[in-house]
């Protein structure tokens, strides 16, 4: 065949003169309006909450026992029976909440799609339920259950269950839209039942993404489990709140830093695992 790379054959003149780009389009009215809107919103809200840089710097640099505690965190809490139990409870909450929530999320995601739920009425019921669950943030779930069930780990578990349900259902529903409909058609044409079809034709297609979402959800839950503890839903957050309320800043920061390390290590594992999945 011919020597030399393909595409160099065109005459010099074309390469020099004709390769001119058309005039670059300017920003669209949409871009201008949304950018302006974002700037105005930021300025207006910052003024509304009374934000000022001088104030922030002054507050942080003024002698302050909270900031001093951060500079001298006390890690001796690692020897405390109660703090260790709280750590373990946090991990248990995160694992159990994720497993329970994600297990229920899979059928709920499937039943919210046309393929998984041909009945229009039932499908809209599932969708409305999913939307309501998604609209409630983790801290609010915790408050709801602490008021309804009482202070303790059970409230935390219930809060994380619903939070996981919301997150994993949403993420899984989104990948369900993009599946290959071919195997679904094949299963239906073979006389399979709806559940059998979903299990054999749909679930294998979304399993890698779903597993990755479950791990991601676990990472979120680990952090959430600390926050919901602040309102009394068990785990390490409850212990942090205990020291905060007594003004024992060294101990509080010690716990926060240790929790931070634990989260970082577990997340590193989870992220590596997720990379291998997809």
């Amino acid at each position: 065949m011919t020597s030399g790379p393909v595409g160099v054959a065109s005459p010099e003149s074309r390469v020099d003169g004709a390769a001119r780009l058309p005039k670059k389009p300017g920003p669209t009215p949409f871009t201008i309006v949304t950018t302006l809107g974002a700037v105005v919103m930021t300025v207006v809200t910052a003024r509304a909450v009374g934000f000022s840089f001088e104030g922030l710097i002054e507050n942080l640099t003024r002698p302050n026992s909270v900031v001093e505690g951060l500079l001298n965190p006390d890690f001796s809490q690692i020897w405390s029976e109660r703090s260790r139990a709280a750590f373990i409870e946090t991990l248990q909450l995160a694992v159990l909440g994720t497993v329970a929530g994600a297990s229920v999320a899979l059928p709920l995601a499937l039943w919210s799609t046309r393929v998984g739920n041909p009945n229009t009425f039932l499908r809209s019921i599932v969708r409305i339920f999913n939307n309501i669950v998604r609209a409630i943030p983790d801290l609010l779930w915790a408050l709801i259950f602490v008021s309804a069930v009482g202070i303790g780990a059970l409230s935390g578990l219930l809060a994380l269950f619903f939070f996981s349900l919301a997150v994993t259902t949403k993420l899984t529903s989104d990948v369900l839209d993009g599946i290959d409909p071919g195997p679904v058609e094949a299963a239906n044409a073979s006389g399979a039942g709806l559940t059998q079809m979903l299990r054999t034709a749909v679930v294998p297609q979304i399993l890698p993404s779903y597993s990755s979402f479950v791990l991601y959800n676990f990472e979120l839950n680990l952090r959430s489990s600390a926050v919901i503890g602040l309102v009394g839903a068990g785990g390490i957050g409850e212990r942090i709140e205990f020291f905060r309320s007594r003004g024992e800043w060294e101990e509080m920061w010690g716990l926060v830093v240790m929790f931070f390390l634990v989260v970082m290590i577990i997340e590193a594992f989870s992220v590596t695992l997720r990379r291998r999945l997809v």
Partner: peptide, 21 residues
């Protein structure tokens, strides 16, 4: 309908296999 379909096999232009399994 499911009983009928179980007696009738179907083959597709695009094969319609689950690639991952």
């Amino acid at each position: 309908m499911r009983d009928l379909r179980s007696e009738v096999g179907m083959i597709f232009q695009g094969f319609n296999l689950v690639d991952r399994t």
